[in-house]
């Protein structure tokens, strides 16, 4: 019946070409034998991957990124899940602006947050680089944790919790045995979203990384400003592979359409 107009379909095809083409270019240029970045690649070689993996700075920054992403995400979930639960379960007991409060980390420009955290960590309090990065990233991803877990809790029927308590299960145990298993998919989704957001962050990390300690995106940024060879393309491809792996896990556990919710 109501067919979509062919011109619209063509338009959408162009948009998708625009979305995916550049990623193909990055993948292609990472295999080039040339010392400059070009597409289509000239020749075929893995030397830039060897170069990337042999580069101590990239390796160290990757380790830092993983530490920061895992640490920041765990911290955010640790404080975010109880908050989301309280807001879903006992909305009347809490003021309405609380939800807005947890959006602030997204609302305030990240670059401003980063600069302010730099002053806090480096000058006012004096926190070492790695803990500062973890705290900063926990703040950055907290809104995603609260929102995604909250969306999952919104579909949970709390009468199941009341039933468990009426059957003699203590409240805390009920939370772990009845509520948590039912919002498992929300927590996984929140973890993945937070992890990837943290892994890709530039604007906060750029202020908090210090001498000798850098996250991967900041290291790429620094490298690109000095050299323009396919090493960064190779690193980018490795990052994309990591993203694909994470997406595959999400797809397996939740289905990817959960991202549009």
């Amino acid at each position: 019946m109501n067919r979509t107009h062919p011109a619209l379909i063509a338009g959408a095809a162009v948009v998708y070409l625009f979305l995916l083409g550049p990623l193909v270019v990055v993948v292609g240029s990472s295999f080039s034998t040339t010392t400059f970045l070009t597409f289509p690649p000239q020749g075929l070689s893995l030397r830039w991957y060897e170069n990337a993996l042999a580069n101590g700075a990239f390796r160290a920054s990757f380790v830092t990124s993983m530490q920061v992403a895992v640490g920041g995400t765990f911290l955010a979930l640790l404080v975010g899940i109880p908050a989301a639960y309280a807001m879903a379960r006992r909305r009347q007991a809490l003021p309405g602006f609380l939800g807005l409060f947890f959006v602030l980390p997204i609302l305030i420009p990240e670059i401003v947050t980063g600069f302010s955290l730099l002053r806090l960590a480096a000058v006012q309090v004096g926190i070492p680089v790695l803990p500062a990065l973890i705290l900063g990233h926990a703040l950055l991803v907290l809104p995603y944790c609260v929102r995604v877990v909250g969306a999952s809790l919104a579909t949970f029927d709390f009468s199941a919790e009341e039933a468990a308590i009426s059957l003699g299960c203590p409240p805390l145990k009920t939370f772990f045995t009845v509520v948590l298993p039912n919002i498992r998919s929300g927590i996984i989704a929140a973890f993945v979203l937070a992890f990837i957001t943290s892994l890709n962050d530039v604007s906060i990390s750029v202020f908090l990384t210090g001498p000798g300690i850098s996250t991967l995106p900041i290291q790429i940024l620094t490298y690109v400003e000095q050299f323009f060879d396919p090493t960064v393309a190779a690193v980018s491809v490795l990052l994309m592979v990591l993203t694909v792996a994470v997406m595959a896990i999400v797809e397996r556990t939740l289905g990817l359409t959960s991202f549009t919710k």
Binding site: I196, L199, N200, P217, I220, V224, V232, S236, M240, V244
Partner: peptide, 18 residues
């Protein structure tokens, strides 16, 4: 969603190449 999950640095870098 895939480009969305690929970092801003990688995606900006793609246009440096192009």
């Amino acid at each position: 969603v895939f480009p969305l999950l690929t970092g801003t640095v990688v995606r900006s870098f793609a246009f440096m190449v192009i």
